[in-house]
C-alpha cells in the first residue's frame, strides 16, 4: 500500500514537473473560430504556451468570467464589449504595439459600442440570416422575410439558433421593431411571436450542431450566422443564404484585453498576429467568417469564397442594427427565452 501510494505521488510529481515555466497566454474565444496551426505557430514564435478556451455564447462567456475565471484575451461581440467596458473589465489597447491595425476595413471601426476603438479591435464580422435548401424552399416564400420561420409549410423543417439575443432580434425585426427596443409591449409581442413559432413549427433550437446538419441537408431552413452560412454553402451547393429585408443584427466580434490580464505584452502580440494578413487569411479560410482585414476580404471574396453571398454581409443597410447592452432588458429577454423553451 505504502509503495503504491508513494509511486503514485512520485508519478504525479513527475507529471506536474513536466509543465514548463514558459509564459502562458489565456485566450477565450468562440468554438471553431481559429485555424489551429496559427496557435502552434504563435507558441513557437513567442516561446510561450497558449491556453485556448472556447465558449458558446456571449452570455456563457460572461458567466464564466463572473465565476472567477481569468483570461488575457477575450473575443466577445459588440454589445458584450460595451458591457465589459461599462463594468470596467477591460484595459485600453496600446496601438503602438498593434502595427497591423491599419489594415482593418474602415466601416467596422468607431462603432457605437466602442466609439474610438480604445478597448476593442475587430476579429470577425457579419450578420444573421437564413440558410435554406433551394431544392425544397420556394424562392417566393423568402419574401416573407423572418416570417418564413413561422410558415407552416415548413413545419418540422427549421433550426433556430439557441441564443436569447438573436431569437429576440428575429422576432422584433419580423414585427418591424428595433432590436434595441426598451418598450415592454413590443418585447411581449416578440415573446408571443416566438411562442407561436415554438408551438406551431416544431423547431429545433441548436447551436454549432446546425452546421453539419445543414451540410447534410437534414432540414430546409436554419437561422445562422453569416460565417457559418459561408461554410455551409461552400460545402453543400443546394444551400443558399438569404438575409431578410426587414433587417437583421450586424455584429462585430472583437478582441479585447481584460483588466486583470497577466500577460499584457503577449496579449498585444497575439492580437497583432491575428491582424496579420497571412494569419487572418488562414483563419478566414478555415472557419468561413468574414475577415476584417481589407486586403484579405477583397482577396477571398474573389477566390476561395467566390459567389458566396454569405461572405460579404451588407454594410450600413439602414434596417440592420448592432445590439446595445441594457442590463434590465437583458434579464427580461433571458427569462422570456427560457420560458419559450420550457413551455
Amino acid at each position: 500500500m505504502k509503495k503504491i501510494g508513494f509511486s503514485i505521488l512520485l508519478l504525479s510529481l513527475m507529471l506536474t514537473g513536466c509543465q514548463t515555466s514558459k509564459p502562458t497566454l489565456k485566450v477565450f474565444s468562440w468554438g471553431a473560430y481559429i485555424d489551429n496551426t496559427v496557435i502552434e505557430k504563435f507558441e513557437n514564435d513567442y516561446d510561450c504556451v497558449v491556453i485556448y478556451d472556447m465558449f458558446e455564447s456571449n452570455e456563457s462567456m460572461y458567466t464564466k468570467l463572473l465565476s472567477g475565471e481569468k483570461y488575457d484575451v477575450l473575443v466577445p461581440s459588440d454589445y458584450m464589449v460595451q458591457r465589459l467596458i461599462d463594468e470596467d473589465a477591460l484595459q485600453a489597447l496600446d496601438y503602438t504595439k498593434l502595427t497591423n491595425a491599419s489594415g482593418i476595413i474602415n466601416g467596422l471601426l468607431n462603432r457605437e459600442f466602442d466609439p474610438t476603438n480604445t478597448y476593442s479591435i475587430p476579429y470577425f464580422w457579419g450578420n444573421v440570416g437564413l440558410i435554406y435548401n433551394t431544392t425544397i424552399v420556394d424562392q417566393t416564400d423568402l419574401s416573407q422575410g423572418w416570417n418564413i420561420l413561422r410558415d407552416t409549410t415548413y413545419k418540422g423543417q427549421v433550426y433556430v439558433y439557441d441564443s436569447e439575443r438573436d431569437v429576440f432580434m428575429v422576432a422584433l425585426k419580423a414585427l418591424g421593431y428595433s432590436t434595441n427596443t426598451t418598450n415592454m409591449s413590443q418585447i411581449n409581442k416578440a415573446y408571443d411571436w416566438l411562442e407561436v413559432l415554438d408551438k406551431t413549427m416544431d423547431p429545433v433550437y441548436s447551436t454549432d450542431d446546425v452546421i453539419d446538419n445543414m451540410i447534410q441537408g437534414n432540414k430546409a431552413i436554419a437561422m445562422v450566422y453569416s460565417g457559418d452560412a459561408t461554410y455551409i454553402t461552400a460545402e453543400n451547393p443546394d444551400m443558399a443564404y438569404y438575409v431578410p429585408l426587414q433587417g437583421t443584427n450586424f455584429w462585430v466580434d472583437s478582441m479585447v484585453i481584460s483588466r486583470d490580464a497577466k500577460e499584457v505584452d503577449l496579449a498585444h502580440e497575439w492580437i497583432n498576429t491575428m491582424l496579420d494578413p497571412e494569419v487572418a487569411k488562414l483563419n478566414s479560410v478555415f472557419v468561413g467568417y468574414s475577415s476584417p482585414i481589407q486586403t484579405v476580404f477583397d482577396d477571398l471574396k474573389e477566390t476561395d469564397f467566390y459567389g458566396l453571398s454569405a461572405y460579404t454581409p451588407r454594410l450600413d443597410y439602414p434596417n440592420d442594427e448592432v445590439f446595445k447592452y441594457n442590463e434590465d432588458i437583458k434579464r427580461i429577454i433571458s427569462d422570456l427565452w427560457v420560458k419559450v423553451k420550457a413551455n
Partner: peptide
C-alpha cells in the same frame, strides 16, 4: 433532445452556465 427539450437539469445548468442567475 436538442435545445428545445428542457428538463429540470437543463434549467439548472442554463441558469448557472448561460444566464448567470
Amino acid at each position: 433532445g436538442g435545445g428545445q427539450y428542457m428538463l429540470i437539469g437543463n434549467l439548472i445548468e442554463n441558469q448557472f452556465i448561460t444566464v448567470g442567475e
